Computed example of a mutant assay.
Amino acid sequence: MRDGVRDMAFTVVSLGGPVAAEGEDIFRAAGVRSLSTGPYPKKEEVIALLRDSAAEAIIVRLVERVDAEILRASPRLKVIAKHGAGTNDIDVAAAAELGVPVLAAVGANAHSVAEHALALMLGLAKELRSQDAFVRGGGWEKKAYGGRELRGSVLGLVGIGQIGRAFAAMAEPLGMSTIAFDPFAPEEAFGPHARRVATLEALLEASDVVSLHCPLTPATENLIGAREIGLMKKSAFLINTARGEVVDEAALVAALRAGRIAGAGLDSFAPEPPAAENPLWSLPNVLVSPHIGGVTPEARREVSLMTCRNVLSLLRGEALAPRFFVRPR
């Protein structure tokens, strides 16, 4: 409601579950009809819901992909918004051809994702998975512990957006130094906590921990493959809280089995959800989580608030900051 007048009745469909309660409150106050599906709905279900509801907006949470056919399902569609930052599950080029802007909640969950990357790094360095299982199994032999300090180590960030900058700031009090590779970032993006390196190869060779924070684009798909892993130290860890497709998973499995790197902490996979028989599950030097780095209650609330406010602003014809708009690459 603006100036005491209720907005015209818009319909918003959330694919993969509803937004947080605070986001629903925003829509309710504005008179918006908010509908949602369950996680990973079937394509025909999505098309039918959009067609029958004549939705003006789509919010993308947990769905395999929003393609041109889905985008055409509602003749009144005016905006599609990602409930998060990564838009690889949206056909952005098709949306542009249809004149439908794509929005992303840039930076809303950055702190939570950075904390999760930190947790994966610490879990690997301190052997938390194996030590937990060891004690639960009746063990108490400290000589078997192979954990290490991170003080004096080098953290290498592939991508220096808001998540990367937050992670670099968290690593500094541990006594780590941070280097970063990001050919698209201006100098000021590196801030006081990270030093720029000119090439990915230089970063991989120098880092004790490599953490991925780049978007998924044609240029970054399989960015970390057998060649790149071969450049890393044998004692190094790989952390991925970005997108699973950035890593050649088969090459990573082979490297972990052969001991070419010390371990990996993975929060994202390709595809998602991953197969039940994924070979990563059997490897003792891997920590995994189900792509939840950015879905703490605090982050989910902030993402929902940002997404809902941006969707409502666009439907009202109000101006939005350029950083929220996603354009075809």
Results as ranks from 00 to 15, higher is better:
residue 216 L to D: 00
residue 219 A to L: 13
residue 205 E to S: 02
residue 219 A to K: 14
residue 207 S to A: 15
residue 246 V to H: 00
residue 220 T to N: 08
residue 215 P to Q: 01
residue 209 V to M: 11
residue 219 A to S: 14
residue 236 A to Q: 00
residue 241 T to G: 02
residue 219 A to C: 08
residue 243 R to C: 13
residue 241 T to D: 06
residue 215 P to D: 09
residue 210 V to F: 02
residue 230 G to C: 09
residue 229 I to W: 04
residue 212 L to H: 06
residue 243 R to S: 11
residue 222 N to M: 12
residue 244 G to H: 08
residue 237 F to I: 02
residue 208 D to C: 13
residue 225 G to E: 03
residue 231 L to V: 06
residue 211 S to E: 10
residue 220 T to R: 13
residue 244 G to Q: 06
residue 242 A to C: 06
residue 230 G to P: 02
residue 222 N to S: 14
residue 232 M to Y: 04
residue 209 V to S: 01
residue 231 L to G: 10
residue 218 P to I: 10
residue 231 L to T: 03
residue 244 G to W: 03
residue 240 N to F: 09
residue 227 R to H: 13
residue 212 L to E: 07
residue 233 K to T: 01
residue 217 T to S: 15
residue 236 A to M: 05
residue 223 L to A: 14
residue 239 I to P: 04
residue 228 E to K: 12
residue 225 G to I: 05
residue 246 V to Y: 03
residue 219 A to W: 12
residue 213 H to F: 07
residue 234 K to L: 03
residue 222 N to A: 15
residue 221 E to R: 15
residue 245 E to T: 13
residue 214 C to P: 09
residue 236 A to I: 06
residue 242 A to W: 08
residue 231 L to A: 09
residue 228 E to Q: 15
residue 223 L to N: 14
residue 212 L to N: 06
residue 213 H to Y: 12
residue 228 E to V: 12
residue 246 V to G: 05
residue 212 L to Y: 03
residue 210 V to T: 11
residue 233 K to H: 01
residue 235 S to H: 07
residue 226 A to Y: 08
residue 225 G to W: 05
residue 218 P to C: 11
residue 219 A to E: 15
residue 234 K to D: 14
residue 206 A to L: 06
residue 225 G to A: 15
residue 227 R to P: 03
residue 223 L to I: 11
residue 239 I to N: 03
residue 238 L to S: 03
residue 210 V to R: 13
residue 226 A to P: 07
residue 232 M to F: 12
residue 238 L to Y: 00
residue 233 K to P: 01
residue 217 T to G: 12
residue 231 L to M: 15
residue 239 I to D: 06
residue 222 N to I: 02
residue 246 V to F: 01
residue 226 A to K: 07
residue 210 V to N: 07
residue 224 I to F: 14
residue 235 S to L: 01
residue 226 A to R: 10
residue 216 L to M: 05
residue 241 T to W: 05
residue 238 L to Q: 07
residue 222 N to L: 12
residue 244 G to E: 05
residue 242 A to E: 06
residue 212 L to R: 07
residue 237 F to L: 09
residue 207 S to Y: 11
residue 213 H to K: 01
residue 220 T to C: 13
residue 242 A to S: 11
residue 226 A to M: 07
residue 237 F to S: 02
residue 234 K to H: 10
residue 235 S to N: 07
residue 210 V to A: 10
residue 216 L to K: 00
residue 209 V to L: 13
residue 238 L to T: 02
residue 245 E to G: 15
residue 235 S to E: 11
residue 211 S to Y: 14
residue 242 A to F: 03
residue 233 K to G: 02
residue 231 L to C: 10
residue 231 L to F: 08
residue 215 P to H: 10
residue 239 I to W: 07
residue 241 T to Y: 05
residue 239 I to H: 00
residue 244 G to M: 09
residue 243 R to N: 09
residue 245 E to N: 14
residue 225 G to R: 15
residue 228 E to I: 07
residue 223 L to D: 13
residue 210 V to P: 04
residue 226 A to W: 02
residue 231 L to R: 15
residue 244 G to N: 05
residue 217 T to H: 13
residue 244 G to I: 07
residue 232 M to E: 10
residue 227 R to Q: 05
residue 243 R to A: 12
residue 246 V to M: 06
residue 238 L to M: 03
residue 236 A to N: 02
residue 223 L to Q: 13
residue 244 G to P: 07
residue 222 N to H: 15
residue 208 D to I: 09
residue 210 V to G: 04
residue 217 T to A: 14
residue 216 L to F: 12
